[in-house]
Design a protein around this nucleic acid. Structure first.
Lengths: 223, 223, 223, 223
DNA sequence: AATGAATGAGCTTTCATTCAT
DNA sequence: GATGAATGAAAGCTCATTCAT
């Protein structure tokens, strides 16, 4: 559980920049330091097996300090999950709009998405969240809605536009969007989630998988 | 956590059939009784949050007895996961071979597979296993290999036969098999895993999803 | 905090008599053993400063066992206070009725009462209860009602009978009963409560105090 | 625990009068401010359950400042108790000497004394001190000696004078003083301490109790 | 001189495991 | 062979005290 472990969050600011004394629980650098430690521990152990002592050690702050920033273990976890959502999915949707060629746009987006969700950090985050889905359904649900679901909506809108333009012949673009999003990571995501593929897939493998998926999709649905 | 909860395992034999006194830890009925209780508890709580007391209560046996049949909590959990594999995937692969029409065979198989892995019991089992995948990688891995991977091999062999027969034009049947297996549950599995779809999908919804996936697949890959 | 300390409770039964295995939290000997340990610790430290570890050590049982018999620290404390009430005040009221001579009856009763409430055990119990009276008012109140108040009612009835018989001339027997009960321990109780009198008063001192109080009372109130 | 709560201490000076910067821990206004906050918190919670954070909040000073004025929680508490003694008992003994009529002098003094020790502030102070008497015997003892004991000495001297003057016939004026002091609050103090009388007794009730006590005393002891 | 964020020992409570019955 | 009361290490969390600002 060393600090070399993957992390989906990036403080973006180091302790060197710490300004003058801040109010209790208000220092964003320290807050991020705790979240980083918590991320490493929760990612390795899951919510229940992680102990606050572990997080204390990993974050390099004292137990009392954690409890100044977060009311309890669960709130720390929820805040971390909020961060997963933002860190994972922010800024990858632009690939879809910035490309005029449909095939290329889909491939670029698919690569970005698959790279993300099959990365070590992404897999760990998904595992942790799926692991508590039974007991904290609203959290895992909101994770899905901020992530995959949002991507789906954007993709569906794109498909709708191409259907309207006569380039694609799709009866139900909702189903089609689901199909496409699953084709992006065919043979990658599930194997990664279950640990059957130990390391992050090579970029080349991702490209091949995405391209095969997009081509299958376009061949079947082109007008 | 009552006994009305979903369970992937079926004892198949009641205590009435119990024979004369057996050696310690040798009574298969009692063993199954413990596994059933453990299944209900682990499914609800996950591995770490489940307590042996809960399992004791749910299984209706004493704590000492559990420790005669299983060395510790983890071994009980591992044994239960072995059972998940068998209970989940046994007996669904025959649909692929018993049908001469390719499309119909794929649809029947897809429905069987999707129904299984999106069922409450199936989702709970997958969640629990994914939740510990980081710490017990061999277990989650073997779960994948016994389940999805085996299905994939059978599907790939089927595709190979149809390619050889000239009915399908597929370059890489491994990728194609992955694609098909993901198309079976497009928009179902992930939403179920993350709790965004609360209840088991209706048979009609599964049929529609599978059919759309198979048709997409065949349209693109038919010779 | 050794086992030689004063205790208001008497198990009345030793571990030698322990019968065959009892249900969890049902063994009255063990229960009493815990209460005895708790009594010693709470008496020394008061409720808040006492730690469950101290009680564990003093009672000679494990922490888990305490929590089988009592849900939490507060319930253990409340149960102990219930016992204080019973142990302290049960069986001292008979002196009042068993004696035909009023003066002698009052003196005997006063001696019994004063001996009790100025004893080490009695003082410790009162201190503990007074110490939490602000936060657990119902408990300290019920202690008073089971103890002093009950004695007052009996004394008042006695006075009423003697007034009716023409032996005493008392306008308000309620006030008189209060006066008498305070005269019993004049110069003893408060000094003991505040630690200004370190040791239990000698029987002779108690007798002298009670006699002086009763004589003062009777001289003023006799018809 | 707001500032509307009863307090036995009166700062008597506000921060407006604060002079130029004083040496650390030397500002008597700030010191009193801390003691006031501590009084409110200790009165509500008792010594052990009170937290320095509560006192910080209630006193309106920082934690560091408290530790400049007082070495630790216990010393703060001890200093506060010193103040209880002074605040409670100072200036009530003059009633005894300023009145030439014995009965009237005793009644006035008794009323002053009973009003004080049955007041909310007085009861809270006594509860707190009795609650720690076992662990800090010297403190509770000195409280008694500064308060009740001093009053007793003065009363005894008064009784001695009247015995010498032939107005009273008392064999042991020490016992008599104890008796009188307890008669002052018969039926009030103990009920208040144990919370059986929730509110401060009405002045009329105190007057009645004191008068009854004094009259009982004088009737029995007059020459 | 005053502050209050940080510390970490110690709190109450839980629970996997053992073993006398 | 089965039981479940007992254990005690370890959990989440609090709080008296310190010290950099």
């Amino acid at each position: 559980m060393s600090s070399t472990k993957a992390s989906v969050v990036d403080p973006g600011m180091t302790s060197f920049e710490r300004p003058g004394r801040l109010a209790a629980g208000q220092d964003p650098v320290k807050r991020q330091q705790i979240l980083d430690g918590a991320n490493r521990v929760f990612s390795q152990m899951g919510f229940d097996a992680a102990s606050m002592n572990d997080i204390t050690r990993e974050a390099g702050v004292s137990k009392g300090t954690i409890y100044v920033y977060f009311n309890n273990k669960e709130e720390l976890f929820i805040d971390l999950c909020q961060q997963y959502k933002t860190a994972l999915f922010d800024g990858i949707y632009q690939a879809l709009e910035s490309n005029s060629d449909l095939r290329e746009a889909l491939i670029q987006f698919g690569i970005a998405l698959s790279t993300l969700i099959t990365s070590n950090a992404g897999i760990q985050a998904q595992r942790v969240i799926i692991g508590v889905a039974e007991r904290m359904p609203s959290m895992s649900c909101s994770f899905y809605e901020k992530g995959p679901k949002k991507g789906l909506a954007i993709m569906r809108a794109l498909l709708d536009r191409h259907v309207a333009a006569g380039f694609l012949a799709i009866e139900d673009t909702e189903i089609a969007a689901y199909q496409l999003s699953d084709l992006f990571h065919s043979g990658l995501l599930r194997r990664r989630l279950f640990g059957q593929m130990e390391n992050e897939p090579e970029p080349e493998q991702i490209r091949k998988t995405v391209t095969a998926g997009v081509d299958l999709f376009l061949k079947a649905y082109k007008a």
